[in-house]
Design a protein around this nucleic acid. Structure first.
Length: 935
RNA sequence: GCCCGGUUAGCUCAGCGGUAGAGCGCCUGCCUUACAAGCAGGAUGUCGCUGGUUCGAACCCGGCACCGGGCACCA
C-alpha cells in the first residue's frame, strides 16, 4: 500500500468524506510522530518513569498475528501511561536469532553448492551482516505500520555493540562468580544444525515406533536376559544391563556378566532402582553415552561411556562394522544383524515420545560433549525469593506458579552453540599447553578482550615449567541467543554502565508483556540475569497474554500454514481496526483469543466490526464539525452547569463514569474491558442517544425572534459545548486503542496544529460532580419508555411517517416528572403527534380504549389510534406481556411463599422481591384490562 | 503420572451467590441530510453432567465427562 496517499488532514466538515479511509491517514501520522520525535523521551523530563522494552522479534521474521497482538497490547498500555503524564519509554529492537539466521544462510550457500567452511568464519559473518542489513528491516517496517509508539531512535539489536559489550561483561562476571563452567556432559545434540541445544529447545513428540526385544546371552552358562529397546543402534554402546534390585527373578544374576551381541563386549548386570520390574521383562540395556537415564545409571555404577555416534548423526568407529551409517540406517542394519544372528525375539509396534529439536525439526541425539554451562540454581534461588514478594507480579496471577515450578528443580543451562552467527564466547584457549590444538583439557582464560586474555594467560602459563610461548585461540563457539535476550531489559538501557542515564531513569522496567510460551525461555532467563547483575527484578509486572488462534481455534503456525496475515487485514481495514479487534477480544484471564477469518475472501467479520466502529467515530465527528460552526472544544469552553438539560447532565455523568472505569481498566490490564466499555459508550450512548437528542437543539429555526431566539441560541451553545467536550474526551480515551483515527479526528475537532499530538495530551480530568446515579437511572427509564413506544409502533405496523399520539400513565411521580420534562425529546424520537403524561386517576377519568397498549415496569404506554390498529397484533403483544408478567409472578410468589426466605434472606432482598411482585401483578392486571377492553 | 485453563444464544465470549447478557450472525421494517461500514424493532438458552452447601447456585464445594495447554516420562 504505502503509496503516499498523503491527503491533507481534515479540518472542516466538507473535507471529511462519508467513509473513513485509514490507509493514507495512518501512514501520515506514523511519519509525523516519528519525525517529530513524539515518542523519544528525555530521561531528565518530569513525570513518573514508565518503561517497557518490547519482546524483540527475530530479525528473520516477518510480522505475524502474534506480533500484532503483542504490539496492540503493549502500545495500548504505554499510550495510556503517556496520557497519564508519565515519562514513558517504549524501546524497540530485534533479536539476532543465531540458529535461525545461520540456517537460512547455510541453505543459501548450499544452493550454490558451498558450505560455510568454504567461506571461512570471517567471510561468513560478513555475509550474515549483509543479510541482516537487507532483510532484518522487514519486521521493523511492519511494526511501524501498526502505529507502535516506540522510540525508534533507541532501537536496539541483540548483536549490536552495546549488547555485545553487555554479553561479554555478563559472561565474565558469571565466570568470576563460578556460575559458568565448562565440562563434558550429555547434551541435546541437534544433528541438523550441528550444535548443542538447551533442554528448552527440545520438544517431545509422540511417534509411532517399535519396541525390539533382544536376547543378551550370559557370558557364563547358557542362559540369557531379554531386553527391549526403541533404539537398537545404541546397543553398540551398551555397557551394562540393569534390573531392579528387588526383582527376585534376577537377584541371583546381579554381578554376573553378559556378552553383548554383535560387539562381543562383556557387560555387567547391575541392580538399579530406576528400573521398573513391572515393565517389559524388567531388564534394561544401559547406554550411558546415549541416554540421559542411562547416563545417570552409569554414574551410579561407574560404567564406562562408549560413544558410538558422530556429531553428524552417523555411526563412528566405535560402532565397528556399522561405522559410517546414518543413525536411522544403522538402526535397520543392527536389527537385521541381530535377527540374522538369532538374538531378535520379537518386534512390537510402540508409540512413544521422542525428543525433537525445535529448530532443526529432527530427533535430537543425547550426546556426550564438552560445552559451557550456566549453573542456574543460585540464580533461580534469588528469583524464587523475590517471587515470595510478588516480584515480579504476574498478571494473571496463575502464571507465577508455572514460573516458580520451573525455577524449582531447574537444570543447568547449556549456553554454547556450535554456530558462528552470535556472540562469540569470550574464552581463549591456551593452545600452547596442548600442542596447538583445542582439546577437552586445554586450559583457558575468560576475558573481556584478546589483550586482557593474553595478559591473564601469560600470568598463568609462562615462565617456570611452561616451555612454550603462550599461544591463544578464542573459543570458536557462539552463545545461545537467549543469553543475550536475558540481558535485554538492562543491556538496552546502557548496562553495564551503571551511570547510564536511561538505566538510572527507567530501570527496572514497569511491565513485560509477552506470551506464556516464552516464560521459561525468556522471562525466567531475564529475571535470573537481572538478579545476578542488577540486584533487582527487571520488571515490576509481567503481563502474560494468550495466543491468537485461527477461525477453527487452531494455533497459528508456519508449518500448519494457517497463519492470518496481519498486513492483509491492515490493508483492508486499517491498523486501528485490527488493533481494536485484537484488544477487544481479550478476556480477563489472559485466555487465547480467536480471530474470525474467511480464507476465500481474506475478510474478517471481527476486524470488520472494528472498522465499522472506526467509521462510526469518523461520522459522529463529522456530524459535530457540521454543527459546531467552526468552534472548537476550547473556544466553546465548559458549559454552564445551570444551563444543562437532562440529556446533557446524563451524558456528562456517563462520560465521567466511563472516564473512571476506563482509566482503571487500562491501568489494571483490563484492556479488553476498556475497549468494550468505550465501544458501548461511544456507539450506544453518545451516538444513539445523545446525538439524536440534541439534533433539534443544534438547529435554531430561522423564524425564531427576540427572547425566544436568544434562548434557543444559548441552548444551542450548551449542546455544542457538551457535544464537543464529550467527543473530545472520548477521542483521548480511545487514543491508546485507535491512535491514528483519533489523532486525525482530534485534529479536525480541535484545529490543533500539525506539531501537536493527541498522543501527548493529558487524560481528561474526571468530573466527580457530574456523576449522578439517580439521573442515569431515570434516564434509563426514559429510554425504556421510548423503546416501548417504538415497539408498539412496529407491532402495529405503523409507517415511520405516520404520527400518532402517545399517552403515558404512571403512578410513579419521579418517572412522570422525567417523562414530562422530556416530552419534546420523546416527540422527536417516536414521531409522536403529542405526548401526554397522566397519573392513573386522570387516565381513568379519560379512558383511551381501543388503543395500542404496552406495559413496562410501572409504566403504561398507550397509543390511542383506533382504526389504524391491527387488533390481532395488539392482542398478541398484550398476551405476550401477560405471559411474561405471569411467569415473573410465579417465580417471585414462590420465593416469598417459602418461610425460610423471609426469615433468612437479607431484608432488602425480601423488600425488593415484594416490590417486584407488586409491580408484576400490576403489570399483569393492566395488560389483562387492556385486553378485555379490546373486546 | 502431575499441574493449569475451558465447557453459557447459531458463532465468539462477558457475567462469578438474588433467578442470564454483549458483539457478530439471523428475521422484519426503513436510503429519517453524521454514518446502509447505517437506523429502528424482533427472535433465540433445561448456563457440560451429577451430588452437596444455601432461603436462593451459571456463580461456592465434591465427583464425573469432554476439549485445550504445560511439565515429567518406562527401556
Amino acid at each position: 500500500m504505502t503509496e503516499a496517499a498523503a491527503a491533507a488532514p481534515a479540518t472542516a466538515a466538507e473535507a471529511l468524506p462519508k467513509t473513513y479511509d485509514p490507509v493514507g491517514t495512518e501512514a501520515r501520522w506514523q511519519q509525523a510522530w516519528e519525525t517529530s520525535g513524539a515518542f523519544h523521551p528525555d530521561p531528565s523530563a518530569p513525570g513518573e518513569p514508565f518503561s517497557v522494552v518490547i519482546p524483540p522479534p527475530n530479525v528473520t521474521g516477518s510480522l505475524h498475528m502474534g506480533h500484532a497482538f503483542n504490539t496492540a497490547l503493549i502500545d495500548t498500555i504505554v499510550r495510556f501511561q503517556r496520557l497519564r503524564g508519565k515519562n514513558v519509554l517504549c524501546l524497540p529492537g530485534t533479536d539476532h536469532a543465531s540458529i535461525a539466521v545461520q540456517t537460512i544462510l547455510e541453505k543459501q550457500l548450499k544452493a550454490d553448492g558451498k558450505r560455510k567452511e568454504d567461506l571461512g568464519r570471517e567471510a561468513f559473518l560478513e555475509k550474515a551482516w549483509e543479510w541482516k542489513a537487507q532483510s532484518g528491516g522487514t519486521i521493523v517496517g511492519q511494526l511501524r505500520r501498526l502505529g507502535y509508539s516506540v522510540d525508534w531512535q533507541r532501537e536496539r539489536f541483540t548483536l549490536d555493540a552495546g549488547c555485545s559489550e553487555a554479553v561479554i561483561e555478563a559472561f565474565n562476571r558469571l565466570h568470576e562468580q563460578g556460575l559458568i563452567y565448562r565440562g563434558e556432559y550429555l547434551v541435546n545434540w541437534c544433528p541438523a544444525s550441528g550444535s548443542a541445544v538447551s533442554d528448552l529447545e527440545v520438544e517431545m513428540k509422540e511417534v509411532d515406533g517399535h519396541l525390539w526385544h533382544f536376547r543378551y546371552p550370559l557370558t557364563a552358562g547358557g542362559g540369557f536376559l531379554e531386553v527391549a529397546t526403541t533404539r537398537p543402534e545404541t546397543l553398540l554402546g551398551d555397557t551394562a544391563v540393569a534390573v531392579n534390585p528387588k526383582d527376585p527373578r534376577y537377584a541371583a544374576l546381579v554381578g554376573q556378566t553378559l556378552t553383548l551381541p554383535l560387539v562381543g563386549r562383556e557387560i555387567p548386570i547391575v541392580a538399579d532402582d530406576h528400573v521398573d520390574a513391572e515393565f517389559g521383562t524388567g531388564c534394561v540395556k544401559v547406554t550411558p553415552a546415549h541416554d540421559p537415564n542411562d547416563f545417570a545409571i552409569g554414574q551410579r555404577h561407574a560404567l564406562p561411556l562408549i560413544t558410538v555416534m558422530a556429531k553428524d548423526g552417523s555411526m563412528n568407529e566405535a560402532a565397528g562394522r556399522f561405522q559410517g551409517l546414518d543413525r536411522f540406517e544403522a538402526r535397520k542394519a543392527v536389527v537385521a544383524a541381530m535377527e540374522e544372528e538369532g538374538f531378535l525375539v520379537k518386534v512390537e509396534d510402540y508409540r512413544h515420545s521422542v525428543p525433537f529439536s525445535d529448530r532443526g525439526k529432527v530427533p535430537v541425539e543425547p550426546l556426550l560433549s564438552t560445552q559451557w554451562f550456566v549453573k542456574t540454581e543460585p540464580l533461580a534461588a534469588r528469583c524464587r525469593e523475590a517471587l515470595e514478594n510478588a516480584d515480579p507480579r504476574f498478571v494473571p496471577e496463575r502464571w507465577s506458579k508455572v514460573y516458580r515450578d520451573w525455577l524449582t528443580d531447574i537444570r543447568d543451562w547449556c549456553i554454547s552453540r556450535q554456530l558462528w552467527w552470535g556472540h562469540r564466547i569470550p574464552a581463549w584457549f591456551v593452545v600452547s599447553e596442548t600442542g596447538g590444538a583445542i582439546t577437552d583439557t586445554t586450559p583457558y582464560v575468560v576475558a573481556r578482550n584478546a589483550a586482557e586474555a593474553r595478559q591473564k594467560a601469560e600470568a598463568q602459563f609462562s615462565g617456570g615449567t611452561h616451555a612454550h610461548p603462550v599461544v591463544l585461540e578464542q573459543d570458536p563457539d557462539a552463545l545461545d541467543t537467549w543469553f543475550s535476550s536475558g540481558l535485554w531489559p538492562f543491556s538496552t538501557l546502557g548496562w553495564p554502565n551503571a551511570e547510564a542515564a536511561d538505566l538510572q531513569r527507567w530501570y527496572p522496567t514497569s511491565v513485560l508483556v509477552t506470551g506464556f510460551d516464552i516464560i521459561f525461555f525468556w522471562v525466567a532467563r531475564m529475571t535470573m540475569m537481572a538478579g545476578a547483575f542488577t540486584g533487582q527484578m527487571p520488571f515490576q509486572d509481567v503481563y502474560i497474554h494468550g495466543l491468537v488462534r485461527d477461525e477453527n481455534n487452531r494455533k497459528m503456525s508456519k508449518s500448519a500454514g494457517n497463519g492470518i496475515d496481519p498486513l492483509l487485514l491492515i490493508d483492508r481495514y486499517g491498523a486501528d481496526a485490527l488493533r481494536f479487534a485484537l484488544v477487544r477480544e481479550v478476556a480477563g484471564a489472559g485466555q487465547d483469543i480467536r480471530l474470525d477469518y474467511d480464507r476465500k475472501s481474506d475478510t474478517s467479520a471481527t476486524v470488520e466490526a472494528s472498522r465499522n466502529f472506526a467509521n462510526k467515530l469518523w461520522n459522529v465527528t463529522r456530524f459535530a464539525l457540521m454543527n459546531l460552526d467552526g468552534e472548537t472544544p476550547a473556544s466553546l469552553g465548559e458549559p454552564d452547569p445551570a444551563a444543562l438539560q437532562l440529556a446533557d447532565r446524563w451524558i456528562l455523568s456517563r462520560l465521567a463514569r466511563v472516564n473512571r472505569e476506563t482509566a482503571e481498566r487500562y491501568g489494571n490490564y483490563g484492556l479488553g474491558e476498556a475497549a468494550k466499555g468505550l465501544y458501548e459508550f461511544a456507539w450506544n450512548e453518545v451516538c444513539d442517544w445523545y446525538v439524536e437528542l440534541i439534533k433539534r437543539r443544534l438547529q435554531v429555526p430561522v423564524e425564531l425572534e427576540g427572547a425566544a431566539r436568544e434562548a434557543a441560541l444559548a441552548d444551542q451553545r450548551t449542546a455544542r459545548q457538551v457535544l464537543a467536550k464529550a467527543l473530545n474526551e472520548l477521542l483521548v480515551m480511545l487514543q491508546p486503542l485507535m491512535p491514528h483515527l483519533t489523532e486525525e479526528l482530534w485534529h479536525g475537532l480541535t484545529g490543533a496544529s500539525e506539531e501537536t499530538f493527541l498522543a501527548l495530551q493529558p487524560w481528561p480530568q474526571l468530573d466527580e460532580a457530574a456523576l449522578n446515579d439517580e439521573l442515569e437511572s431515570s434516564f434509563a427509564d426514559l429510554i425504556e419508555a421510548i423503546r416501548v413506544v417504538r415497539n408498539l409502533r412496529a407491532v402495529a405496523g405503523l409507517k415511520p411517517s405516520q404520527s400518532v399520539p402517545v399517552r403515558f400513565v404512571t403512578g410513579r411521580s419521579a418517572l412522570a416528572g422525567v417523562l414530562s420534562a422530556a416530552t419534546a425529546d420523546i416527540t422527536a424520537l417516536t414521531r409522536a403527534e403529542r405526548v401526554e403524561v397522566l397519573d392513573p386517576a386522570a387516565a381513568e377519568a379519560n379512558p383511551a380504549t381501543k388503543a395500542l397498549a404496552g406495559v413496562s415496569g410501572e409504566l403504561q404506554v398507550l397509543l390511542p389510534i383506533e382504526g389504524l390498529v391491527d387488533l390481532e397484533a395488539l392482542r398478541a403483544r398484550l398476551e405476550k406481556d401477560i405471559a411474561k408478567a405471569d411467569k415473573e409472578i410465579k417465580g417471585l410468589a414462590g420465593r416469598l411463599a417459602n418461610p425460610n426466605f423471609a426469615d433468612k434472606a437479607p431484608p432488602e432482598v425480601v423488600a425488593e422481591c415484594k416490590a417486584n411482585l407488586a409491580e408484576a401483578e400490576a403489570q399483569a392486571e393492566l395488560a389483562r384490562k387492556r385486553l378485555a377492553d379490546l373486546g
